[in-house]
Design a protein around this nucleic acid. Sequence first.
DNA 1: ACTTTATGCAATATATATATTACATAAAGT
DNA 2: ACTTTATGTAATATATATATTGCATAAAGT
Lengths: 67, 67
Amino acid sequence: MMKNLKLKVARVEHDLSQAELAKKVDVTRQTIGLIEQGKYNPSLQLCISICKTLNKTLDDLFWQEED
Amino acid sequence: MMKNLKLKVARVEHDLSQAELAKKVDVTRQTIGLIEQGKYNPSLQLCISICKTLNKTLDDLFWQEED
DNA sequence: ACTTTATGCAATATATATATTACATAAAGT
DNA sequence: ACTTTATGTAATATATATATTGCATAAAGT
């Protein structure tokens, strides 16, 4: 799996730590960290929750053009 | 959870049955059926796989504007 | 120097997505 | 009438997302 740098950038743009974002979307810090590292395959609802918190869409944060 | 009518429409536009789409994305027919019924919270990778098969993006099929 | 803060990592536990198998029904084909 | 085809549903099993707890480290604040 691949790192999700777009998520990390969006999070930092909102001046949130992994722990702070985690609390907002009601998961643990580890879950956010692992998603950013590309070691998890998150659920759609969690992705949507993260997007709404960061004012982004699924395509913004979780869509990859390349293969 | 809410039904995913956009997925069903996109699938039908491609003239695929639930079973045929399932085979293409390597899950079971039940999984596709339950996603369409909104009874599952699919993984991001499965969503992406479905999108690529149906020539759509995540926002096209899995993003909901309303709340 | 000490204390937070942020992050990575690891082991175990729990919840749930998904598979497997099977049965039921309605519609369409023959 | 019979046979497919498509879909819903349900029970059990398995894989894995996520939680929990704890330890380690590097950077920044004091």
